[in-house]
Amino acid sequence: MFELRLVQGSLLKRVIDAIKDLVNDANFDCSSTGFSLQAMDSSHVALVALLLRSEGFEHFRCDRTFSMGMSIANMAKMLKCASNDDIITIKADDGTDTVTFMFESPSQDKISDIEMKLMDIDSDHLGIPDAEYEAIVRMPSTEFGSICTSLSTIGDTVTIAVSKQGVTFSTKGDIGSGNITCRQNSSTEKPEEATIIEMKEPVVLTFALKYITTFTKATSLSSQVTISLSSDMPVVVEYKIAEMGHIRYYLAPKIEE
C-alpha cells in the first residue's frame, strides 16, 4: 500500500510542469524515504532527478519499496483536473496497474477521483558520483530564467564562464552575439536576490540552450538556482523545493573534438 497526501497540491503540478517537456515516461520510486524519480530525455543528453522527502508530506505511507511507471504527459493531463489550492492524495495498491489521484478543495465541498493507468518502463538508474565542483553559482532563479530566454533568441548554445570577475553567459548566432555578466552580490538584504559565486578554478563550458531553457520551467519552485560546474563534466542546475527536497537537472556539455 502506498499513499501520500500533499496539502500544497499546486507543488506537484509545478513539479510535473518542470519535467514534462524533458521526459516522456518515468518510473517514480516510492520508499520510506520519499517519492523520487530519475530520468533522462530521449536523446540521453539531460537527466532529471527529483526528490520529495516523506517528511514534507502531511501523510506518507509506503509499506514496501516499489516503482510506478507513469507517462508524464498523462500525469500532467490528470493534474489539470486539480485546482491550484486543492489537496492532492496519491494512492496505489500492490500489484495493481493503476494509480489514483484524489483532489479535495480546501473547503472539502468538491472531491475528484482520477484513476490513471501505470506503465511498464524499462529504465536503468545511473550512478551519479558525488563530485567536488570547480565553480558553484547561486543566483535568483528568475534572473537565470530571463538570461536563458534572452540568449536563446540569439543563438542555440550558451557558454558559461566563471571567473573572479563573475559569471558570464554568452551566445552567438546568425544575427549576432551577446553576453551577460552577473557579478557576485551578497550585500543585498534579501537573500533570495543574492548572487554568490564560489570558485576553486575558473571554468568555461558550452551547453545547448534548448535544454537549459527547459530546466528553467522549475523557476516557480525556488527563488534561487544553484549552477555547479566542473571542466568536461555535466552541469548541475538545482532548484531546492522548500522543506521537501529538490529537482536537479544534469546536462552533458558540448565538447571540442
Binding site: T157, A252, K254
Partner: peptide
C-alpha cells in the same frame, strides 16, 4: 568542431 556529449558518457549504469 564542437559536439554534444551524452550523460551516459559521464554517469555509469548501476
Amino acid at each position: 568542431g564542437i559536439k554534444q556529449s551524452t550523460i551516459t558518457k559521464f554517469f555509469s549504469k548501476g
